[in-house]
Amino acid sequence: MTYDSEDVQQILQIALTRKQEGEFSREELVEMASELGISSNMLETTEQKWLAQQEEEGSRRTFNTFRRRAFWAHFISFLAVNLCLILLNLITSPSYFWAIFPVLGWGLGLFFHWRSVYQSKTEDYEIALQKWRTQI
């Protein structure tokens, strides 16, 4: 019986998920690669690429967490200040609702802040990420 590469990948994936320990040593990884006909140089190159990808993903997660915390701090200050302004408005001049102007103005800024934080597939995101990396 012969298997194509997709079948082999699926079979190995199932076998790996069924393994009880869930972890493999470096030696086991090298042994599996050699059994599959993968050279040690190819394995090491691929492993280095994988480690670089893991580091990149970790860096992006940290950056996203940093940006989201900054947004939520902005949101909380928006709520606190504007609630105080609304209360002040209702106490001092209930007939004219002037507090709507700072609420709308700051709300617009808050919307753009939200959009920049949660839209991570843009060129601006990549620029901000690179700038953040140089600052840390």
Rank of each mutant, 00 (worst) to 15 (best):
W98D: 08
F71K: 06
L12I: 09
R18T: 06
R69D: 05
V81I: 15
V117A: 01
E31Q: 13
I76R: 11
W106K: 07
A70W: 01
W106C: 06
L43F: 05
L104D: 15
S77F: 10
T92C: 07
I14D: 13
M42Q: 14
E21N: 09
F78V: 02
S95L: 15
L129Q: 04
W72T: 15
L16G: 05
F63S: 06
S59C: 15
F75K: 00
Q54M: 11
R61C: 03
N89P: 01
W132G: 02
R115S: 05
F24N: 03
G58Q: 13
T2S: 08
Q130N: 14
S59H: 12
I127C: 01
L85V: 01
K131H: 13
H74S: 04
V8C: 07
R68F: 03
F111W: 14
R68M: 10
M1P: 04
T17P: 00
P94W: 10
L51F: 14
E55K: 14
T134N: 13
Y96W: 12
V30D: 11
V103Y: 04
T65F: 07
D7W: 04
P94I: 09
M1F: 11
A33S: 14
L79V: 15
F24H: 08
R60F: 02
E57L: 06
Q20R: 12
K131T: 13
T134D: 12
E27P: 03
F63I: 06
F111K: 08
T65S: 12
E56Y: 09
Q135E: 15
G109P: 02
F63Y: 12
R115A: 09
A33D: 12
W132S: 09
R18S: 15
I127H: 13
V8I: 15
W72L: 12
T45L: 10
G105N: 00
P102S: 11
R69P: 04
W114K: 07
N82L: 03
Q119E: 11
A99P: 02
E28V: 02
F78D: 12
L110W: 02
Q135S: 05
Q135V: 08
S40N: 10
A15Y: 12
E23P: 00
V8S: 02
G58K: 06
